[in-house]
Design a protein around this nucleic acid. Sequence first.
DNA 1: ATTGCTGAATGG
Length: 369
Amino acid sequence: MAGPGSEPGELSDAELLQLLLAEPGDRALQPGDSGKPNSSSDLPLESFSEVLTGDSAAEKVKRKRAQTPLEKYYLKYLCVTDLSTQSWCEQQMVYGRELPQLQAPETVVLLNTGKSIHLARELEVHDVVKVHTTSKEDSWAIKILNLLSMIPVLQAGGCVRELPVFGVIEDVFLMGIIDELCYSAKGELELRELKTRGRPFMPSGAQKKRDYFQVCLYKYLFDAMVQGQLKPDVLTSHIYLRLKQPLGLQIREHAQKAGFTVTCFGDLLELMYLNLTLSDIPSIDCLKIEYSHQESNTLLGTEVVQFEEEKVREKAQYYLAYWKGQREVQGVEIEEAWKCRSCSYSEICDWRKKRAEGPEQRSGPKKSK
DNA sequence: ATTGCTGAATGG
């Protein structure tokens, strides 16, 4: 059995503490003795390793154990596509973050082509302008202003592209951008996600699965927003944004043009909350994915995705468990080893190495389908 | 970088 806790090197909190206290030459942790002249207010009080000196074994163990992937990469939020890429291969997603420069050139070309097609489509419905920002609140203000500008369009029955969504799942803040939101002939609010493809045929099941999950997450977040779950404190508590932070001049001018008078970030959050909840925008009724061929620009097919909230939540919970350090990174199951052929990281992949050495040593969770 | 921390999505 190789469940959590039986891994070599894994220590209980009590054992760790003992190790730390037994460390010779370390300094006792005392109030006011941190040696830091100015203590920043958002400094976590958590880590013992802060006051230890040298590369003690205890320190290494503590660091390894204390750092969840979210902390390791300094992430205060995740993107929807972080989770959907995880559904393709979690190990690859991690390598993608650690070694982005190792990505195969042909992949880069494919992605860039997709990128420019998406940009062209975005420009069909609105202009894109650069706005100068001076704080992280300013950068978030842009997302929120974009969202605010789209609400009346939707209310009037119009169509929007690149709509920002955010919210919290399993105590992790998630952010994403919905490709397109329109009302269908039936009057239903419909999400459309365009996927451009290098080859002129529909994707494999594995790709569809990933794309389904992606759009389901969008609906999950969007619905929560229009149902009033995006209160201002969600952004302050998860991303540590400051309500009283004054917005930059360009942001305020931009807001004014759109008809919003704001001075600080909190003003904007209030407006967002009120506009989302009072605007009577419905939940998303229909999820569609359109696959089209990059070169010929022909539609290959459309998939309608059914939304099952419980399943989406379960999947999200599973993927987020990695980020929260509740389980180790997982590569593809043996049946999906074909994915490795197109993976930029197959040569260096630890998961594959472990596989080659002896798959019987690794007892991952049973595949549940 | 001792400090610092992020356009999302882009496709197989």
